[in-house]
Simulated scan of single mutants.
Amino acid sequence: MSTRLEHRIRRAERRVADAYGLRMTERGVAVAEPAVQVRVLTVGSGAPVLYINGLATPAMGFAPLIARLPGYRHILVDLPGHSLAPPYRWQGRPVRDLGVGVLTGVLDGLGLGEVQVVGSSLGGLFALWTAVDAPGRVSRAVIVGTPATALPGTRGTASMAALTSPAWGSVHQCLMRLPSPRSVARSALAEAIGPDAARGLSDDLLDLHRLPLRLPGQADSYRSLLCRLMRGPTPRGENVLTQAELAGITTPMLFVWGERDVFCAPDRGRDSVARIPTAKLSVVPGGHSPWLDDAAGCAALIGDFLAREEVAAGDPRRG
């Protein structure tokens, strides 16, 4: 059963790639500490840009965005326990250490000293943690949507609260593994990314969100990571960046924040972003994954920001 399901996921990925005119290659990258395996999809050529997916979302979900950003080597990371990357329960060390270890370990495995990073939700959290704890590895960062639990004022959804509940969490986890119609998955996804973005997803992109949770170990991976990040609808305090940490970030950053982001309104996050001396906030139409609402608009903002790295890299005053 799991083999057939994996084939379905791979076929959906190929159709998404074809729909957006993308030619992708796949490889696994072994990270030493923590000892995990990530899955990496690469599209295009040029300066590398690393993309980190959100919680329980696929790397190929970035397809509508990267199709509008030619001239880069887009490196899409399926984190451990996501999509077709092997399951991982995110236990042991603090989850912040694990997240930074995964991101820097991927860079080591790819032979990259530092890189520009685009992180969505959980990926934004990992990028921010890394900018604080290993600043030499992230040259610039685009944080798309609320960066998971990184900033004060963030709240989870009702389904997230249910999944972290000791009484009902295991029941909800079992339900996630059961086959269900696309309409049910689309409705559930709308809670996080907004109804317009959910309605606009192709069936293949929707399948890339829903089918991996039926693979052995993936729903458990999702719930275990969520429980490390949140208690009910509230982020655990150790996962929220302090004011001093935000003020100490030196990595240039662009926050692309949907005006209808359900996890935190951009106006509520504005003060936190303002504490980062190298950060700029751009509020855009849409929800938590705003490139699914307006790919062209988000790509224009992100492309302009990434291009500044290219100009700086060619500056004779550098190196």
Rank of each mutant, 00 (worst) to 15 (best):
P147W: 10
M176E: 03
M160V: 08
L151W: 14
V100S: 07
F126P: 00
A265N: 06
K280S: 14
G156E: 01
F305N: 00
K280G: 08
A141N: 02
L241R: 09
L189G: 06
G111I: 04
R199F: 15
C174K: 06
D304H: 11
S139L: 05
S139R: 03
T234P: 01
A192C: 14
F126V: 15
L125E: 10
G44M: 05
A219D: 06
F126M: 15
L189I: 13
V184G: 08
E191W: 13
H82C: 12
M1K: 08
G297Y: 09
L76I: 11
A131L: 02
G44T: 02
P166S: 15
V171M: 13
G303E: 11
G124I: 11
E13Y: 01
M60W: 07
L292P: 00
L206F: 01
R27Y: 01
P70M: 14
W257R: 08
R214L: 07
P285K: 07
L122N: 05
H74K: 08
E114S: 14
Y20V: 02
G303K: 05
I276M: 13
L281S: 09
A197T: 07
A56R: 08
L55S: 07
A296Q: 12
V138N: 01
C264T: 08
G145M: 07
C227I: 05
S183D: 11
G303A: 08
G145I: 02
Y51W: 13
G169C: 08
S165H: 07
P179Q: 02
A59L: 10
I52L: 15
T157F: 12
A63V: 08
M230Q: 06
P152V: 06
L306I: 06
C298H: 03
Q173P: 03
A134W: 09
Y88Q: 09
P166H: 14
P147K: 00
Q91N: 06
L128W: 01
E191Y: 09
V29P: 00
W129K: 00
